[in-house]
């Protein structure tokens, strides 16, 4: 599954962004399947906006985003749901867990959304153990710390099949050791699915062996 950007430009940031050089805004960019993409972006350069465009939950842009050679607006609601269930997974910067569900239920919701879950419940437990969050699985989403929430969001994103994983500052609330563990798990899971990812962050980092590095 290829993702192509063509002359993409956020309408609210147009004036600001047209003043400076970017590898993505207003350019032709193609993300090839299976590549690990790092997008480095200073604050205010539209990092989260880009991720939301790519995930098709924000639409205030000019230009085009094509998924499988089809622009986002041409996909029906059910097609989009199918893509989100099977092909594109996401870790939001603001995590977006359900406060009324426990940590494990938040993961379970995503896991059982498809009729034939991609990974087993044991696999989820194993991932939780690797990220040191086994002890919070039964806690309500409301009572978790940001670091715990971030790791639950990561496991949630990894509990589904995908060809692309979108990550918006996925380690912002994690210490170095936990970030390393999480990155290791993510890389493993991407490899096993032959999937690529697009990661945005403020700074350079050594979490992954990136194939492509872009400046927003």
């Amino acid at each position: 599954m290829e993702i192509q950007l063509s002359q993409l430009m956020p309408i609210p940031l147009r004036d600001k962004l047209s003043q400076r050089k970017s590898d993505i805004w207003n350019e032709e960019v193609t993300f090839r399947p299976g590549t690990f993409v790092k997008i480095k972006a200073p604050s205010g350069s539209g990092k989260t906006t880009l991720i939301h465009y790519l995930y098709n939950i924000r639409f205030d842009y000019t230009g085009q985003i094509r998924v499988d050679n089809k622009p986002w607006p041409d996909h029906s609601k059910n097609e989009i749901a199918g893509i989100r269930q099977q092909h594109i997974s996401i870790i939001f910067q603001d995590l977006r867990l359900f406060g009324q569900l426990s940590a494990s239920e938040n993961i379970e919701l995503k896991r059982v959304m498809i009729p034939q879950p991609y990974c087993s419940a044991d696999k989820v437990k194993e991932m939780a153990a690797r990220l040191n969050v086994t002890h919070v699985l039964q806690q309500s989403g409301k009572t978790l710390s940001y670091g715990e929430r971030q790791r639950i969001a990561i496991i949630r994103a990894l509990s589904q099949p995908f060809k692309w994983l979108l990550m918006d500052e996925p380690f912002s609330h994690l210490d170095a050791e936990n970030a390393r563990l999480a990155a290791e798990l993510i890389a493993e899971e991407c490899k096993s699915r032959q999937a690529g990812f697009i990661l945005t962050d403020l700074d350079d980092d050594q979490h992954f062996a990136y194939d492509v590095k872009l400046q927003l």
């Binding site: 939950i57 059910n78 749901a81 989100r84 269930q85 977006r96 009324q100 995503k110 959304m113």
Partner: peptide, 15 residues
Amino acid sequence: EEIQLLVTLGAAPQQ
């Protein structure tokens, strides 16, 4: 809001 988040996470409108 919950329904919006569900759809964001990939829940199909049909579901």
